[in-house]
């Protein structure tokens, strides 16, 4: 009996630590983002003082956060659409058609999994400068759409495999073309997988830092994670604004995840079990 209580206490402590380390940094920064610099420096832990949104006003004044936000939204949405269309078409072919080069195609789509993205820092910079896509949103969109290829591909392949072929057969008998069957019969059925892959790709593009930093040059083309780097290097003394900027960057990711957690969780499972 004593052993059981001990085990229960251990479990409870472990889970409490897990919850604390996951939430406390976010909650603390959130709370501090409504305080003045003086209050932050004095380190009062209470939330009693007058709360103000001044820091948020400052954050938006110090860094072009509105432009960054707009860029992030455009890049994430377009990259997600491009990635989904390209990968679902390829996944469909790989599931339904028999051809000699199939293993090669699968390899091509999974290669991104074993290439650490830092290795491509300099080569991708060359690629984009030589095609005049350096410092453009188009460049970032193409890179992000490609980075998400493995996950989307596996999510789509494992879902299309579960669709019975009879449906498509019926469409062909009715005289539908290959393309029409795909777009009008197959795609609508794969909506759940689409949603999963879309969330994953959106989060990837929204959160990506390394290429956003190295493949764009001026503030009109940068995405939100870079805003944090700005605050760290340029306005490192305005703590309140820095806290506010951090919250502004992470809130969308958290909302998307909380709302679409089912899709994220099933997507991770499908994407990695195969890989």
């Amino acid at each position: 009996m004593a052993k059981k209580i001990l085990a229960k206490t251990g479990v409870f402590i472990l889970l409490a630590i897990i919850v604390i380390i996951s939430l406390v940094p976010i909650i603390w920064v959130f709370g501090a983002s409504f305080k003045t610099n003086g209050e932050i420096l004095s380190g009062s832990l209470s939330l009693t003082g007058p709360l103000s949104i001044n820091n948020y006003v400052n954050a938006f004044r110090l860094a072009p956060l509105v432009a960054f936000y707009k860029n992030s939204v455009v890049v994430s949405i377009v990259a997600t659409c491009l990635n989904l269309i390209v990968c679902s078409m390829a996944a469909y072919i790989v599931v339904r058609c028999q051809f000699k080069l199939k293993p090669v195609i699968t390899l091509v789509f999974s290669l991104g999994l074993i290439i650490p993205s830092a290795a491509l820092l300099q080569p991708l910079y060359t690629t984009l400068t030589s095609t005049h896509l350096y410092n453009t949103l188009t460049g970032l969109i193409l890179v992000y759409a490609a980075l998400g290829m493995p996950t989307t591909f596996y999510v789509m392949v494992s879902y299309i495999q579960t669709i019975p072929y009879t449906l498509e057969e019926a469409a062909y008998i009715d005289g539908a073309s290959f393309g029409r069957t795909f777009f009008q019969i197959v795609l609508p059925i794969t909506r759940p997988a689409f949603a999963t892959a879309a969330v994953m790709e959106f989060l990837l593009a929204w959160n990506e830092f390394q290429f956003a930093l190295t493949l764009t040059g001026d503030t009109t083309k940068r995405t939100l994670p870079i805003a944090l780097y700005y605050f760290k290097s340029a306005f490192a003394t305005d703590y309140g604004a820095m806290f506010a900027a951090t919250i502004v960057v992470i809130i969308p990711s958290i909302i998307v995840f909380i709302l679409l957690q089912k899709q994220v969780i099933s997507g991770l499972a499908a994407g990695s079990v195969k890989g």
């Binding site: 897990i18 919850v19 380390i21 996951s22 939430l23 976010i26 989060l203 929204w206 959160n207 990506e208 830092f209 939100l224 994670p225 870079i226 944090l228 780097y229 951090t246 960057v249 992470i250 990711s253 958290i254 998307v256 995840f257 909380i258 957690q261 994220v264 969780i265």
Partner: peptide, 14 residues
């Protein structure tokens, strides 16, 4: 499980 995953969905820069 959801709370534990939150740090994984926000940008590592954050």
């Amino acid at each position: 499980r959801v709370i534990y995953f939150i740090p994984n969905v926000i940008s590592s820069a954050a």
